[in-house]
Write a protein that binds this DNA or RNA. Structure first.
Lengths: 403, 403
DNA sequence: TGACGTTTTGAATCCGCTG
DNA sequence: CCAGCGGATTCAAAACGTC
C-alpha cells in the first residue's frame, strides 16, 4: 500500500476507510463483479497526481471511486478586454488551458475525459460536472451519449456575481452543475436525502442552490496578493456535494484539481480525495491549503443518522445538563448583542425574558431568528462558539445514554 | 394579405405595425438590403398554423420575425413520431442502446426545426428555447453547432415545484431557457435593458428568474376539469421574455404553440404572434384563450426610449446656444481636475485641447471617459452640476423647436 | 479600536454609429 | 469592412483608508 499523505493521516477515520476501499477492489463478490479485478497500484489516496488527466486516469484502478467532481475548462470565448464603467479592466480568464480551437476540439477533449472518468467510477458512483453556458451543453450531451444517466441539473446561484457592465445581457448570475449516475441502471447511488433535508429546515433540497462566490480569506492568493487560481470554487459548494453524495470515508476523484477545493472539503468532512492537476503551481498551492485544513470532529461528519430526524433538544435541557451555567453571558458572533442565560432555559436582556429564538429576533428587530446559531458562548478554551455546539454535545450524550 | 385574426384587430397598434412589418420585407432601403425581398405570402400574423412545424416554417418568408419562443417536446417517446420520416425506431426504450438511438433521433428532429426557424429569423432576431435536463443539453449543443450565438442561459426557478416524492434526487425546481442570437456577429439584437432594470428596483436583471408554475384560473381546463395541455407555461414568463427582447408591434414566432401562452402574452403586450401547432385541439383552446385577452392600453406598452436612442447633441451646440460661456471653468465632481471651455466646443487644460471626452480621459489617465457626466459646471444657483444637465436642456429645446 | 466612507474585484462569449 | 470616436455602462462583498 502506498503511504497516504499527511492529509490522509489526519483524516478522522482514514485508515479504516482506506481498507474498505481496497477491499472493494480485490474482494468484490463474484456475482456483482461486472468490472475486472484490479491488478497493480491501488488508489493513491489524498494525493495530487501531476499530469494530463486522461493519462493519469488510465493508471487508476477501474471502478474504484465513489464520486467524481469535475470542473473542466469552460471554453470561454472572450473577444476583447472588458472594462467596468469606471474604466478599470476586468481580470478575465485568458489562460492557455481554457483555449480550444473549436467546439469539435472541445467535444473531443470532453469525450476523452468523460470516458476515462467513467471507467474509474464504481457502479453506483455519481459525477458532478460544473460549467457555464459556454460548455455545459456540450458536457451534458456527451454525458448522455456515453450512457451516463442524469439525475439532476443543479443551479449554483451566486449571491454576488459580476454584473453585466455593458447592459447588453442579463447578469450571468449562475453556473450549472450536472449530477449523473454511471448509467440508467444504477439505482443504488448514494444520496443522503434525510441529512440534507434535516439541514434545510426539514424541507427537501431543491435543484437551485445559493452560495457566494469564493472571496476573502478563503480565496488563495500569492505573495503579491494576486489570486492563485482564476476560478477557485467556494468550499461550501463542494461541502454540499460531498454531504449529498458521499459518506465519510468515501473517495472523491477530481480530475481538474486546480486550487484543491475538493481536497479541502474532503479532508474537512472526513472523505478521501484523488486529485489530478496538470500545473504543478496549482498543485503546490492546493497541497499547502489542504495541509492547513482541520478535519471536523467525527461526530460532526458521521454517516447519515437514522430515518427519523435528530431528536429535538430544548435549551433548557442544555442548562439542566450543566453544559452552560445560568448567569452565563451570550452574545452574537460580533458581540453586538448580549443576553443572560436563566436557569429555566430562557434568556434575558434586562427585564425582557424569552426563548433563545424570540430574544434573538427581538434584539435584532427581525421577525425570526435561529437562536442556536445566533447566540455564542465562551468555551473553556476561551473561544467564542455558537450554542449549537452545545446542542451537538447534548445529542451525543443522549445517543450514548440510549445505547 | 391573409386576414388577421380577431386577436390582431384588438391589438393596440395592430394595423400600423403590421404595415411596418410588411414594409420591412418589401421596401427595405436598398443600401441596407442584406436580405432578399420576399415573394409570396407575407407573415400570417396572429394566427395559428396547423401542421408540422418544419413544413409550416418552410412556407414562411425568410428573415421576417423578431423573436422566436420555442417550447419543444422533450419526451423521447413522442419525438419518434414527431421527427423526420425515419421509421427505424421502435417505441420501447428502456435499455441503453435504445436510449442512444432515441437521442440521435431527437437530435435530428431538433436540428431540423432549429434550421427552419433560423431561416425565418431577422438578422437581429433572437430565440428563447425552454427545456429541462432531459433535452436542454441537446438543444444547446445543436444551437451552437448551427452558429446561433448564446447570449444567456436563464433559469426559471419555480416557487412551487412538484416535490420529489421518492427522496432520491433534489427537487427538480427549475427549467432552463437558452437565449441566443442568430449568429456571433448579430450585435444589434433587441434587449430592453433599461426597461427591465426600471422594473426591478433599478437593479439589472439576473439570469435567474422566479415565477410560480401555471395554476389556478390561468391554467386551461376542459369541461371535465382536466388540464388542456400538460405543460402550459405561465404567462408571466412569456411576458418577461417579450418585454425583454421585443418592442410593441414586433412579431414573435412560436413553432410549438400548444396552449397559446405566447399568443396570449403577445396580444396583451401589443406584439404580434405567429403560432404553429400540430394538434387542432390545442389550437382551438389557444384561439379561444387569446380571443378573451384584453390588450393593455397603449401607454402601458409603448417602448421606453433608451438613453442610447436619444438624439446626439454636440458640446459645441451647447456653447453656441449660450448654455455655457466660453472661458467657463469645468471641474470633476471633487474638483480634482479643471478645464476651460473654448468657443468651438472643445475644452482645454493648459495648451492641451480636445473634446470633453478626450480631455476627461487624458486628465484621469484613463482610456476613455464620458465627458458629459465627468465634467461639472457651476450653475446660476451656485451649485456644481454635471454638464449632462445642459445637454438635457438642449434636447428639450430641440424637441420644442421641432414641434 | 471602531465607525464610516472609498476602493477593489469577480469563469464575461458585454457598443454602435459614421464616414 | 474597418477605423475612429462619442459616450453609455455595475452589484455585492470584502478590503482598505481615514478620522
Amino acid at each position: 500500500m502506498r503511504p497516504a499523505s499527511a492529509g490522509a493521516a489526519a483524516l478522522a477515520d482514514g485508515a479504516q476507510s482506506q481498507i474498505k476501499v481496497l477491499r472493494a477492489e480485490s474482494q468484490a463478490p463474484r456475482s456483482r463483479a461486472r468490472f475486472p479485478a484490479v491488478v497493480g497500484e491501488p488508489l493513491p489516496l489524498n494525493q495530487i497526481l501531476i499530469g494530463d488527466c486522461i493519462e493519469e486516469l488510465a493508471r487508476l484502478p477501474a471502478a474504484s471511486v465513489d464520486l467524481v467532481f469535475a470542473d473542466p475548462p469552460y471554453n470561454l470565448q472572450l473577444e476583447s478586454t472588458l472594462s467596468r464603467p469606471d474604466q478599470s479592466i476586468v481580470d478575465a480568464v485568458d489562460d492557455d488551458w481554457d483555449k480550444f480551437a473549436s467546439f469539435s476540439h472541445y467535444d473531443a477533449f470532453t469525450r476523452s475525459w468523460l470516458e476515462a472518468v467513467r471507467r474509474v467510477m464504481k457502479p453506483d458512483a455519481t459525477i458532478f460536472v460544473i460549467g457555464s453556458y459556454h460548455n455545459i451543453f456540450r458536457v451534458g450531451s456527451l454525458l448522455q451519449d456515453q450512457g451516463y444517466w442524469i439525475l439532476n441539473d443543479i443551479v449554483w446561484r451566486k449571491t454576488n456575481p459580476m454584473p453585466n457592465f455593458r447592459g447588453r445581457r442579463f447578469t450571468n448570475a449562475h453556473e450549472t452543475l450536472i449530477w449523473a449516475a454511471k448509467g440508467a441502471g444504477a439505482k443504488n447511488y448514494r444520496f443522503n436525502y434525510e441529512l440534507l433535508k434535516a439541514g434545510n429546515e426539514d424541507c427537501q433540497l431543491r435543484s437551485d442552490w445559493l452560495f457566494p462566490i469564493c472571496t476573502g480569506h478563503e480565496r488563495l492568493k500569492d505573495e503579491s496578493g494576486h489570486k492563485t487560481h482564476p476560478t477557485q470554487k467556494p468550499e461550501a459548494l463542494l461541502a454540499r456535494i460531498l454531504l449529498a453524495a458521499t459518506n465519510a470515508g468515501d473517495v472523491v476523484l477530481d480530475p481538474f484539481f486546480g486550487s484543491g477545493t475538493t481536497g479541502a472539503a474532503a479532508k474537512r468532512l472526513g472523505r478521501h480525495f484523488v486529485g489530478i492537476e496538470r500545473e504543478e503551481i496549482y498543485a503546490a498551492a492546493a497541497r499547502k491549503r489542504i495541509a492547513a485544513v482541520e478535519p471536523l470532529p467525527h461526530e460532526a461528519i458521521a454517516a447519515t443518522p437514522s430515518k427519523r430526524s435528530e431528536p429535538r433538544v430544548a435549551f433548557s435541557a442544555i442548562v439542566e445538563a450543566g453544559l452552560i451555567a445560568p448567569g452565563a453571558e451570550l452574545t452574537d458572533e460580533k458581540q453586538r448583542h448580549r443576553a443572560i442565560v436563566r436557569a429555566d432555559g430562557t434568556v434575558a436582556i434586562g427585564a425582557v425574558v424569552g426563548s433563545i429564538h424570540k430574544i434573538g429576533a427581538l434584539t435584532q428587530g427581525l421577525p425570526a431568528c435561529n437562536g442556536w446559531t445566533f447566540w455564542h458562548y465562551v468555551s473553556q478554551s476561551g473561544k467564542r462558539e455558537p450554542i449549537d455546539l452545545l446542542r451537538t454535545v447534548a445529542r451525543k450524550n443522549l445517543r450514548e445514554a440510549e445505547a
